[in-house]
Computed example of a mutant assay.
Amino acid sequence: MNEPKYETVKQALLHQIQAGKLRPGDKLPTEEDLMKQFHVSGITVRKAMTELANEGTITRIKRKGSFVNGVQAADNSSHLIAFILSAEDNFDVSYMKIIKGAQQVAADFNYSLIVEWSNENLAVEQASIQKMLDRKVDGILIYPFDPIQSKDNFLLIEQNNIPYLLVDRYNVDHPCYFSGCNNYDGAILATRELIRLKHTKIKFASFQFFLQSEQERFAGFSNAMRQAGLPVTDDHLLTHMDYDRLAGSILKRDITALFCSNDKLAIEMIELLTNRGVNIPQDVSIMGFDDWDHSSNLSLGLSTVRQNFEEIGRNAANLLNQVIQGKTYGGNSKILSGVSLVLRESTCENPYA
């Protein structure tokens, strides 16, 4: 028998796949390893791998390697991932950065990313999900407005056995794959900085406290306060802003620093408190969270905790691909990107300490 050498390599790899020694999602040996294993040239190995790829048995990804599809997976794959965003501002650069990061990684794994906006509406979100299910996408990324209210929408995806992952926010009572930032540690960094600046009368201002992310930030704030020997009571959490009353408390020196759960709220506070005669940061230091795109472009730069939005998007697509390929199981893996402190003009040392 004079079987071509490339066919020998090809059939040997097929046998390993069919025998379950190489499973869907597994990475194949490198070209160099296969050359040594079968005592053949690089040209022979590349021809065998090209035929396997053309037949849909494997996927070859530039700079990543070759991965097993499995015959059925290759036949049924749409090579599409949906990203559904329930957001109030479709042009917010933060969302665009998350999309960019996810898109880069999706392309590396030979997926196209479809972006759908549902505008903070559960019915529209559900319609978007159904639309993507009808398109037979391989997986779904979701940035929900309220992950607690969206529970039935998540169940719809689960009933269709499609892998999905939540971005930025999740429901602690509903296990899920998730990509976000380290809210807890970020809040500790911010609070410790305010304490270092000799602030002891610090309040935490919430924007949407029903979100787990904001609860985690308040927990980090509370921990940092208690570690510094400062008490934390219900009065330290502001969820409904009465700016006249807040300005009065600041001018009476009952509050010397405000840690806001996000930059949008912090920027609103700077504007509305300034209009009421409060000098920032002399009367009150203000700290945000996110490093939102506008945070450095104000007449008064906002001190804040920086999230890496592109990294969150990359982590989301990477983890979703792991789930699609069957490399990650259990439905409860979470990846948190790091955070860092950015200090600008909205904070200063407490002049009354």
Rank of each mutant, 00 (worst) to 15 (best):
M1G: 12
N2P: 11
E3L: 13
K5Q: 14
V9H: 04
V9I: 10
L14A: 07
L14T: 06
Q16G: 04
K27N: 06
K27C: 08
K36Y: 08
S41R: 08
I43D: 15
V45H: 04
E51G: 05
A53I: 02
E55M: 11
T57I: 12
I58Y: 02
R60W: 00
I61Q: 14
F67Q: 05
Q72D: 14
A73D: 14
A73M: 11
S78V: 00
I81G: 01
A82F: 03
L85Y: 04
A87Y: 08
N90V: 12
S94T: 13
K100W: 05
N110H: 10
Y111K: 08
Y111S: 01
S112L: 11
I114T: 13
N121R: 09
A123F: 10
A127P: 03
I129L: 04
I129P: 04
Q130R: 15
D134K: 11
G139E: 01
L141T: 08
P144I: 04
S150Q: 09
K151S: 11
D152R: 15
D152E: 14
L155K: 13
I157R: 07
I157F: 00
Q159K: 12
I162N: 07
R169P: 03
S179D: 03
G180L: 01
N183M: 05
L189W: 07
A190C: 07
T191D: 02
E193Y: 15
R196I: 02
L197N: 07
K198S: 14
T200V: 11
T200P: 05
I202N: 02
L211Q: 14
Q212F: 06
S222Q: 11
G229C: 06
G229D: 06
L230I: 15
T239A: 05
D242C: 06
L246C: 06
G248E: 13
L251W: 04
K252C: 07
D254A: 10
L258A: 01
L258F: 05
C260E: 05
N262I: 02
D263R: 02
A266K: 01
L272H: 11
V278M: 02
N279P: 06
P281W: 00
V284H: 03
V284K: 00
S296K: 12
Q307I: 08
N308T: 08
I312N: 06
A317H: 05
Q325G: 09
G326P: 02
N332F: 09
I335T: 15
S340Y: 03
L341Q: 00
E345D: 15
Y352K: 10
